[in-house]
Design a protein around this nucleic acid. Structure first.
Lengths: 209, 209
DNA sequence: CAAAAAACGTGATGAATTTCACAAAGTTAG
DNA sequence: CTAACTTTGTGAAATTCATCACGTTTTTTG
């Protein structure tokens, strides 16, 4: 729990990525892997990988590399893969539906357990195995999920956010273009698809490789 | 064109965000805005905003703030809003369909002009006004788009990428979990939904706010 | 008009992150 | 067993980025 609180955020953001690739290697039956091989796979500099791993102690062996199974077990523990985080999805539009059908993160530690929408035609149905409830019943039916995925129209974002926060949600993955306001105890990650596309276009024009 | 090449990447990534909010202000009829107000709206520290703007010269006036119209025109020019970047979308699954219907970036400088899929049932149809072609006809029908959105199954990612690169694409927005390999002249932005959700969960457990 | 308030632009600082580069330790081949 | 090779883990340097704090300029108020 209250482990070493000194793992850099940049490192923490890469952990799930490492986990997935190590899992792939394991499924492929690979026994060992070097930071260089892993680097080719995840496209992160090998020195960065070694540095990242080193925050957790000496996971590898000099001249050998890393034992895949050992590494996998370590990451499973570290990322709490055994304990599932329950997630609610708000807004079953195009994007929301995609996530539900995606059967998001089948092999991961997060699971969408309930969805909400204002459209009466959807309420009561199941999409991707997830029941859809009416947004008016949010407080009543969201249980005690602590994470929400927000895929509502941007005008609705702040209102819904306030209700989620009120209800005790502590993490929000915000796919709306709106920048939502939350108390300092709530963490928000923005994924702004239009900004991503535009900034890619900007980089192409102004930062030729 | 060959402007000042010294704009920090972190700044460049925020430009589209600034643009959108300034545009909102303009549509609301606001005439002026301070870095503090903008900061509240986009959730970026006001000093950071002033610093970002300063890379482009003195856009504001002391004691007054920034003139919204002037700022908007400046950003429109800087982000090449007048010149539309044509984009191809590969993979009309749940996520791809969502983007097409999203009518992505109506008011922006990027536009999906063609989509591709292997499903014969989709080929020939239009989704969100975008024609869907068969993936086998990729080379023939993609025109000279320079940016592609990749929403295919991860197994197909590298193969399609190679074809895109061969065809001259210089930017890829990759929504698959695969880390694709490209020549150094091609820019890839990864948006890894599962990593985003997992890292949010990790932060919540290990970095209490 | 004068004083007070607002707000920019930026030097300086500090924090976070990446990368270099190499000693130390282990592995492999003959 | 020895020599050659591999690869880690990490000090130190380099880079990138965010934030502070304040002089300066302009606006606003009385």
């Amino acid at each position: 729990m209250g482990d070493e609180m000194k793992i850099p955020q940049a490192t923490a953001k890469r952990l799930p990525l490492y986990y997935r690739f190590i899992n792939n290697l394991y499924l492929q039956g690979k026994l060992r892997v070097s930071s260089k091989e892993l680097s080719d796979a995840v496209k992160v500099d090998s020195a960065t990988i070694r540095r990242d791993f080193s925050y957790f102690g000496a996971l590898g062996k000099k001249g050998y590399g890393y034992n895949v199974e050992h590494l996998l077990q370590f990451f499973r523990r570290t990322l709490d893969q055994d304990e599932t985080t329950e997630v609610a999805l708000i807004g079953v539009g195009n994007l929301g539906t995609a996530f539900l059908n995606y059967n998001f993160m089948k092999n991961n530690n997060t699971k969408i357990v309930v969805a909400f929408d204002a459209n009466d035609g959807l309420v009561g149905t199941e999409i991707g195995g997830v029941p859809v409830a009416h947004i008016d019943d949010l407080e009543e039916k969201m249980g005690n999920v602590s994470v929400a995925i927000l895929t509502v129209p941007s005008q609705a974002a702040q209102g819904i956010t306030d209700r989620l926060v009120e209800r005790g949600v502590s993490g929000i993955l915000n796919f709306t273009p709106a920048r939502i306001s939350v108390p300092p105890t709530v963490r928000v990650h923005h994924i702004d698809l239009s900004v991503e596309l535009q900034s890619l276009a900007y980089f192409l024009k102004h930062y030729p490789l």
